[in-house]
Simulated assay, not measured.
Amino acid sequence: MGVSGAINTPGVSIGISIVFVIIAALFLLVDFDTIERCVENGVDKQYEWMAAWGLASNGASHLVISPVDLFSFKN
């Protein structure tokens, strides 16, 4: 069993997916904190898209993709 065989085991795949979900959740917390700080400090409206892009691209997409990848695992 080589490296590809060890990576394709269910335990490793589930573990990697769980790590990605945790990282995505942490990125969501950081993104929401950034948005909250921008609102509190009265940052210009032109920077709203940066916060929205960070929220959409980092957290939300990974939280959708990782569980789908986890449930699509086949033996």
Rank of each mutant, 00 (worst) to 15 (best):
G2Y: 03
G2M: 05
G2A: 08
V3Q: 05
S4C: 03
G5V: 01
A6W: 04
A6R: 06
I7R: 11
I7Q: 07
N8A: 14
N8T: 08
N8Y: 04
T9S: 10
T9N: 07
P10Y: 01
P10W: 01
G11V: 04
S13Q: 11
I14W: 03
I14Y: 04
I14N: 08
G15K: 03
G15I: 02
I16L: 13
I16Y: 03
S17Y: 02
V19S: 10
V19A: 15
F20W: 07
F20P: 00
F20N: 04
V21A: 08
I23F: 08
A25N: 06
L26K: 07
F27C: 09
F27W: 09
F27G: 01
F27M: 15
L28N: 10
L28R: 08
L29E: 10
L29V: 15
L29Y: 13
L29D: 09
V30I: 14
V30Y: 06
V30A: 12
D31Y: 06
F32E: 01
D33L: 15
T34F: 13
T34R: 10
T34V: 13
I35S: 04
I35H: 05
E36K: 12
E36H: 11
R37A: 12
R37T: 08
R37N: 08
C38F: 08
V39H: 11
E40L: 10
N41S: 15
V43D: 00
V43K: 00
V43L: 04
V43F: 00
D44S: 11
K45T: 11
K45Q: 10
Q46M: 08
Q46T: 07
Y47N: 09
E48T: 09
E48G: 14
E48Y: 12
W49M: 09
M50I: 14
M50P: 00
M50E: 08
M50W: 10
A51K: 04
A51D: 04
W53A: 14
W53E: 02
W53K: 06
G54D: 05
G54K: 03
G54N: 07
G54H: 06
G54S: 09
A56M: 13
S57M: 15
N58W: 12
N58L: 15
A60I: 15
S61E: 15
S61P: 00
S61G: 06
H62T: 08
H62R: 08
H62Y: 10
L63T: 01
L63K: 04
I65N: 03
I65Y: 01
S66T: 11
S66Y: 04
P67K: 00
D69Y: 13
D69S: 15
D69C: 14
L70R: 02
L70V: 05
F71R: 05
F71C: 06
S72H: 05
F73K: 13
K74M: 10
N75A: 15
N75H: 14
N75Y: 14
